[in-house]
Simulated scan of single mutants.
Amino acid sequence: MTADQNDPYVVLDVAREATQQQIRHAYLSQLRASHPDTRTPDAPPGDTTVQNVLDAYEILGDPVRRADYDQHTAFRPGATPIRVRVTVHRTPGPPSFRATPVRWHS
């Protein structure tokens, strides 16, 4: 599965600006098309398609979770990604902390 197929908007085949009604309609259509009891014989077999549709609607069906998803995927129309370089400085020698067993005193 590619990264695009993990995107709930791609799974449900809706635009990022879609309304809740459009998302629900796409969810029901996709579910009917991929459900094992109702799919056509030429549809791809397997329950992974159904699970992908259910997972996508779980995120996009709830406005709070959808806003959280959009914020964490940093979707901004027309924005370009920013490359960040992280440098880790390590000091030679043992770590500056020591972990010991936990002792419980009642």
Rank of each mutant, 00 (worst) to 15 (best):
V64M: 00
P63Q: 01
Q51D: 15
P41F: 00
A15E: 03
L60P: 05
A15I: 02
G61A: 04
T19L: 06
T73S: 08
I59F: 01
P41C: 01
R24E: 06
P36S: 07
E17L: 07
A56C: 09
Q21P: 09
D47P: 06
D13R: 13
A33Q: 09
S34Q: 15
A15C: 02
V11K: 00
Q20W: 06
L54S: 04
H72L: 03
D68V: 12
Y57K: 09
T38M: 00
P41L: 04
Q22C: 10
T40K: 15
R66Q: 02
V14H: 04
N52E: 14
A56Y: 00
E58M: 08
H35A: 09
Q30F: 07
A56W: 05
E17V: 13
Q71L: 10
T73D: 00
R65S: 13
P44T: 15
S34G: 12
V14Y: 04
Y69M: 00
V50I: 15
H72M: 00
D70A: 05
A33R: 05
A26Q: 07
E58Y: 15
R65Y: 07
T49V: 13
I59R: 03
D42A: 11
Q21A: 14
L12H: 02
H35V: 04
A18H: 01
V10F: 02
R66W: 02
E17K: 11
I59Y: 02
H72S: 00
A43K: 08
R32I: 15
L28D: 15
D13C: 14
L28I: 10
S34T: 14
V10N: 02
D13S: 13
A56S: 08
Y69W: 03
I23N: 05
S29A: 12
R24T: 11
G61W: 05
R66D: 02
A43P: 13
L28W: 09
D68C: 14
S34H: 15
V64L: 04
T48G: 13
D47L: 09
A33M: 08
A26F: 09
D62A: 08
A33I: 05
Y27R: 08
